[in-house]
Simulated assay, not measured.
Amino acid sequence: MARQLRGENVRFTVYDVGGDEPVPVGVATLLPDHQARTAEYVVMLAPEARGRGVGSAATRLVLDYAFHVVHPRMVWLKVLTPNAGGVKAYERAGFRAAGTLREAGYWLGRVCDELVMDALVRDFTGPSAVRALVDPERG
């Protein structure tokens, strides 16, 4: 939290665009470490936005932005292992399991493991919404 407040981050508002009007439902943050050329990813979604693909889409867009604008070698995150929906959303967006921090968190008042996941620039393939805006020829 202290790092976020110092302003070294990139923040995005997450919108649900499934209805007639876009509705803000969360926030996604990149915390770059420019010396190591890495970035931590954090996302918070309102309960009503979960389980509908909003998190996966937002995460994929933030990875796109990270790899085409911020230029880290990798982006990483931590997620509590009982959060199966979150793990699946991150996997759909391009993250892979990298390791486990045993008994590092709490889920509904019980001790649980934390999964560390990462996404590498070389694994981020497919069309880029960011690159398409900057250079339509390469999009």
Results as ranks from 00 to 15, higher is better:
residue 76 W to I: 11
residue 115 L to R: 14
residue 89 A to E: 06
residue 122 R to D: 07
residue 86 G to W: 01
residue 73 R to N: 09
residue 116 V to G: 00
residue 77 L to T: 12
residue 102 R to M: 03
residue 107 W to Q: 03
residue 89 A to D: 09
residue 91 E to G: 13
residue 119 A to V: 12
residue 90 Y to F: 14
residue 71 H to K: 08
residue 94 G to V: 01
residue 96 R to S: 14
residue 97 A to Q: 06
residue 85 G to T: 09
residue 77 L to E: 04
residue 70 V to S: 01
residue 72 P to N: 08
residue 86 G to C: 02
residue 94 G to F: 00
residue 64 D to E: 04
residue 71 H to M: 05
residue 82 P to A: 12
residue 64 D to G: 09
residue 70 V to K: 02
residue 95 F to W: 15
residue 122 R to V: 12
residue 98 A to C: 09
residue 78 K to N: 06
residue 104 A to C: 05
residue 102 R to F: 05
residue 64 D to Y: 07
residue 98 A to N: 13
residue 84 A to C: 00
residue 89 A to S: 15
residue 97 A to R: 10
residue 64 D to V: 06
residue 75 V to A: 07
residue 64 D to P: 09
residue 86 G to A: 02
residue 114 E to Y: 08
residue 122 R to W: 05
residue 97 A to L: 04
residue 118 D to V: 13
residue 91 E to N: 14
residue 109 G to E: 06
residue 75 V to C: 12
residue 104 A to M: 05
residue 107 W to R: 10
residue 65 Y to D: 01
residue 112 C to T: 15
residue 113 D to P: 00
residue 112 C to W: 08
residue 106 Y to L: 15
residue 101 L to V: 11
residue 101 L to K: 10
residue 77 L to H: 06
residue 118 D to T: 14
residue 65 Y to M: 04
residue 69 V to R: 15
residue 95 F to Q: 13
residue 80 L to T: 08
residue 66 A to C: 08
residue 118 D to S: 02
residue 122 R to H: 11
residue 84 A to H: 05
residue 77 L to Q: 02
residue 100 T to F: 13
residue 80 L to D: 07
residue 76 W to H: 15
residue 113 D to H: 06
residue 118 D to L: 10
residue 75 V to W: 07
residue 103 E to R: 08
residue 76 W to A: 13
residue 99 G to D: 00
residue 107 W to P: 01
residue 81 T to I: 10
residue 119 A to K: 03
residue 91 E to T: 15
residue 88 K to T: 11
residue 78 K to H: 10
residue 69 V to L: 05
residue 106 Y to Q: 07
residue 114 E to I: 08
residue 121 V to A: 15
residue 69 V to W: 04
residue 63 L to R: 11
residue 123 D to Q: 02
residue 96 R to E: 15
residue 83 N to L: 04
residue 104 A to N: 09
residue 67 F to A: 04
residue 112 C to Q: 06
residue 84 A to K: 01
residue 85 G to I: 09
residue 103 E to N: 05
residue 71 H to A: 03
residue 72 P to A: 12
residue 102 R to P: 01
residue 94 G to D: 00
residue 103 E to C: 00
residue 120 L to H: 14
residue 89 A to P: 11
residue 87 V to G: 05
residue 74 M to K: 14
residue 87 V to T: 12
residue 95 F to K: 13
residue 75 V to K: 08
residue 118 D to H: 11
residue 71 H to Q: 10
residue 71 H to T: 12
residue 100 T to A: 10
residue 99 G to K: 07
residue 73 R to D: 11
residue 80 L to Q: 10
residue 111 V to G: 00
residue 119 A to F: 08
residue 113 D to N: 10
residue 101 L to C: 04
residue 93 A to T: 09
residue 98 A to L: 13
residue 104 A to F: 11
residue 101 L to E: 15
residue 102 R to V: 09
residue 83 N to F: 08
residue 78 K to Q: 10
residue 89 A to H: 10
residue 119 A to E: 01
residue 106 Y to A: 03
residue 100 T to R: 15
residue 88 K to P: 01
residue 96 R to N: 07
